[in-house]
Each structure stands twice: as structure tokens, then as C-alpha cells.
Computed example of a mutant assay.
Amino acid sequence: MPYSPATARIDEEAIRALPKAEVHVHLEGTFSLLDLLTLAKENAVALPGPAATLFDISTHTGFDAPDVTTGGGAGAGSAGLSGFLRFLDWQCGLVRTPAQAARVAYAFAARQSASGIRYSDVIVNPTHWNAWRGRDLALFDALAAGFDEADQDGLCRVGMAYSLLRNQSAAEAEAAVAGLVSARPRRVVALSVDGDEKVTGRTGEKFQHAFAAAARAGLRRTVHAGESSGPEGVWDAIDLLQAERIDHGVRAIEDPALIERLIADDISLGVCPRSNVTLGIYPSWEQHPLRRLLDAGVPVTLNTDDPAPLGSTLESDWAVAAEQFGFTYDDLVGFAARSIEASFADADTKAALRADLAEHTAVVPA
């Protein structure tokens, strides 16, 4: 059933002030326009269009970028998805040196801090980063250097989720995990998989051994599922890939038995309503199942997915969600608390965030 909007939009400054985490955001989807202009100049690469409308290209299926892949952070459902994915390939292809990668990482932490985010699990899919093919571990080391510097400067703490591409082979996935297990790159806390479910079909069985190896090695597991595919993708993520968290997962609302399973196993959904609406999974915020999932008892967090090309921030998306679904300030405190619990932050970081949230809400009236 539709929900009446709140009578007043919750102030974004109040949202920024809430201690919180973000658990579903792609590094590839956070490059600012300044980042892209600087990188393009450094590498003497021409822009694919006017700077003022550069991000608009991400909605065009005809975007022409060299050496592209079919991976992606955001989901399917819109005619613009293929262009969006090629845009991500083009922009990540501008990152060619360790110093540039570290700078992108530092900028991400600064962006998150500006939204009041204290900890982030950021997803990195190395198939987008064309200059680093065959050197995944070097890329993650360079990114970690940037996150280390950000940490020293008091910015948002960051853990990385190494993301497989859905159309990679089982052998490629298992080799990638073997490399992670052997090298133990710092700040890599989880294994992920993303890409367009609708195009590739069900891939849970293909990646089952890779995710099992990651679990044995102590890596956390998060899986993009239940976005462009139906509930079956979420079932596969849980039963075959040992997923501890689902990225998106909104199509779970179509299967009551799956809803019960998510609740029973305390598996959270990293929901990104703006992304889902922009990319056509749902036609409007009003028809998005965010409120129905919450009312059913599913642990849900509210995230941005790819905020830069989607033209948003976390505080803006939380404010719009409150307005659209009638969430109160207390409801947003609940989102903040669930974000901390759903994150793959270490125990000390989680404890500190819980304490900060409790202290903040004790002195800030709802």
C-alpha cells in the first residue's frame, strides 16, 4: 500500500550529525567531476563530452569508451545501464598510477566524512580499472595507502570488498580469491560479486567454491542479488555463496518465505532506493518496497550505491526517504544503528560507533 509522505523534510544537517556507516557504495561510483577533470589532464585524455554535462553521459546507452567491460556497480532495469557501466570503465581507466589511486581513495574517505559517515565498506571491482589488469593486488595496495592517510587525518575509516564480476568464470573467481587469501591485502575485509543479473543469469553455483574459500579464510561475504533478477538471486546468495549481507535484495519482497529466511538469519539488505528508481527497477520512490521490507521485519540499511553519477549524497537520500515514506527522526536513528551492525567493521570500531550514536541521540531530541 502507498505511504503518505511526512509533513516536513528532516533537515540534512541533522542526518549528517548521526554517527553511522555506509555498507553499499562502489568506489567506482564516487569520482567527483574535479577528480575526472584532474585525472584526464594528468593523462592527456580528452573528455568524452562537455565537462558541465559529463555525468549525463552515464545515462546514454551510446557512450563510446575504449576497452570496456560489462561489469558494474549499479543495477539493471534501465535502457541506460550499458552506457552507465561503460562510463565507469572510462573513468576508472583514468587511474593509472599508485599516487592517483591513493588520491581517489583519500577523496572517497573525505566525501564520506562530509556526509557524517564514520565507517564504510566500499566495493571495488577491479575489472573496471583497465590500467591495473593483472595487477589487482597492486591496485588494492595503492587504494589502501590512500585510506591509511585518510585514517591518519581523522576521516572516515574504510574497509574494502573485493568484487568479482558476474560474467567471470569460476576459475577466474577462484584464482582471485586464492590471491587474496595468500597476500592478505590490508583493508580488504570481504568478497563481493556484482554485475547485471538479468544479463548473466543465475551465477551462484559458478562462484560457490570461490565464496567457500573466502569464508574459510575469514573474509566476509556480501552479494549483489535481487535487483534486476527476482528472489531466486537472493536465495542463491544465501544458500550457495554464504552471503552475510545482500546488496540491494529489494525483490525479496516478492517471496514471503525469503522474507522469513532473511529475518531468521539476520541477513541485512543494503538498499539503495535512488539507484533503483533512477535505473528503472521501480518506477518511483512511492512504489519502492523499502517501507514494506522494514515493516516486515527485515534488517534494512539505506545506502547510495553510486552517488556521484546519480547526483546524490547519503544525507540527501535519507531525507528524501523520510519524506517519501513518512520516516521520523527516530526511524533514521534506527537506520544508523542498523548500518553499524551490518558493517564489516572490526569489533572495536563497532563498539565506538554504537557508543557515539547512543551519546548523540541522548542529547539530540527526536
Rank of each mutant, 00 (worst) to 15 (best):
M1W: 03
P2M: 08
P5Y: 10
P5A: 10
T7L: 14
I10N: 06
D11P: 11
E12P: 08
E13K: 15
I15Q: 02
I15K: 00
K20W: 04
A21I: 14
H24R: 10
V25G: 04
V25R: 11
L33M: 13
N43T: 05
A44P: 10
V45S: 04
P48H: 06
A51S: 15
L54S: 04
D56Y: 03
I57K: 13
F63E: 01
D64G: 02
P66S: 06
V68R: 03
G71D: 02
G72W: 00
A74I: 15
A74H: 01
G75D: 02
G75I: 08
G77C: 07
L81F: 11
F87C: 01
W90G: 02
Q91W: 04
L94P: 05
V95Q: 01
A107Y: 02
G116D: 03
D121S: 12
I123D: 02
N125Y: 00
P126V: 03
W129K: 00
A131L: 11
W132S: 02
G134E: 00
L137C: 05
A142F: 09
L143I: 02
D148I: 04
D153L: 14
L155W: 11
V158R: 04
M160F: 03
L165C: 13
A175E: 15
A176V: 13
V181C: 03
S182E: 14
P185G: 10
P185Y: 04
R187D: 03
V188E: 06
V193Q: 00
E197G: 06
E197S: 06
K198H: 14
F207T: 07
A210E: 02
A212E: 14
L219R: 01
V223E: 05
I238R: 01
L241T: 09
Q242R: 10
Q242P: 07
G249W: 02
V250G: 01
A257T: 12
I267D: 07
I267N: 11
N276P: 08
T278I: 15
Q287N: 12
P289T: 14
R292G: 15
L293S: 13
L294W: 06
V298R: 10
T301E: 01
T301N: 03
L302K: 07
P307G: 07
A308N: 11
P309V: 06
L314C: 12
A321F: 12
A321K: 04
A321Q: 07
A322D: 00
G326Q: 08
L332K: 09
G334D: 11
A342K: 09
A345E: 06
D356C: 05
D356T: 09
A358I: 09
A358H: 07
V364Y: 05
